[in-house]
Design a protein around this nucleic acid. Sequence first.
RNA 1: GUGGGUGUAGCUCAGUUGGCAGAGCGCCAGGUUGUGGUCCUGGAUGUCGUGGGUUCAAGUCCCAUCACUCACCCCA
Length: 420
Amino acid sequence: MSFQAPKGTFDWMPPRSELALAVRDAMSAPVRRAGYGYVETPTFEDTALFARGVGESTDIVSKEMYTFEDKGGRSITLRPEGTASTVRAVLQHGLQNGPLPAKVWYSGSFFRYERAQKGRYRHFSQVGAEALGVEDPALDAELIQLAAEGFASLGLTGVRLLLNSLGCAACRPAYRAALQDFLRALDLDDATRARVELNPLRVLDDKRPEVRAQLGGAPLVTDHLCEACKGYHEEVRSLLTDAGVAFADDPRLVRGLDYYTRTTFEFVHDGLGSQSAVGGGGRYDGLSEMIGGPPLPGVGWAIGVDRTVLALEAEGLAAPRSSGGVQVYGVALGDEARRLLFSLLIELRRAGVTADMAFGGKGLKGAMKGADRSGATYAVIIGERDLAAGAAQVKDLASGEQAAVPLAEIVTTLKERLTQ
RNA sequence: GUGGGUGUAGCUCAGUUGGCAGAGCGCCAGGUUGUGGUCCUGGAUGUCGUGGGUUCAAGUCCCAUCACUCACCCCA
């Protein structure tokens, strides 16, 4: 076979793929319980939506987008993140005119053209949640708590929450200018100098030791927040504390996207290779206007499904759950028995019992081998003799005990035994 | 975009100074024609990543290339 998954991508295959499903379920369950509705937007959008929404100055837009021209000459981009699309959909359908906040969540694939490494691929999967139309610290706190709840429900104990505030349109410009003054005086390479002019906050996030060493005396956002931002941030912190959500203040925490204001947070984990974030988000009060909408404050997060699976594995929580396994495995001898077994399995499944059978005309030995490997608790064996007796052999695969059960009682018997 | 490492069976890998392509696991079959796991026996599976070069002879040496992987940058 000459094909393989495209460069920088990978396949989720059983049994490991069960973990990806478990993460999606675990992260979405809390938000669903909190009244967030499911939205599904196209996997691609007008390129300009991301250019304006995510920000021209970001690496995502400047070099990591999968952009192409469609047959109608439109510039199309595979979504590199979920917030811009979600806000676009909310505005397009007028949710901002309905009850606020508009609370929505999503789950899907995202794309960034990057060199792959552990925890970072060209195709990745996120679960996200957004609350739009209301500026209320309780909403920021709710979202953060819901994500923390999701991680906890997976059994993860190594996820840490970092919290910061980036200020607002009133106080950020002054801070930005102060930071630029500081950064311009440093000894930096050309790329970083350019970043100082475009997006100085991101320089604080540089991991290189030679850069880090110079950032010691950098002005911090927290010292430049206006009264409104300070009060807002204090309220978020206090609500989180009351809710029992542990967090660490990190005045250096910035995010890669241009639209963030005020509350910014990141969930980090140490088991992700060189990556650190399993999820992150924040408030983005100016995003709607950036993409041509009315003023519409918002707050949200996205959790990396693949990275969360890595975190699970790093914590030894990747125990093989029921990976597509079944409870009952059918083995038939002869065509007539096989037809009967086929129908019996359908009945079992309708009764809520998971069931599989031997396919491909294997002999009894081979079929029993299949029963063993399926991980089933019981095998149901039907041969000519059983057929004549109107019964089937029900075998406990762990103990090896086997007994004939009348065909009419098979479903109820198995269901009973399995729910004990 | 930059740098390091690795490419041999489905998987994990061995392969000596260049000399017949290997092991374990898995898979299939039989031992047991109505019974799985353990055990025994047998079997199938290879573009040695790809292309070129050196050589009587290349998995092994040389060059190029591709892929994977880890890291930088950046981010979920």
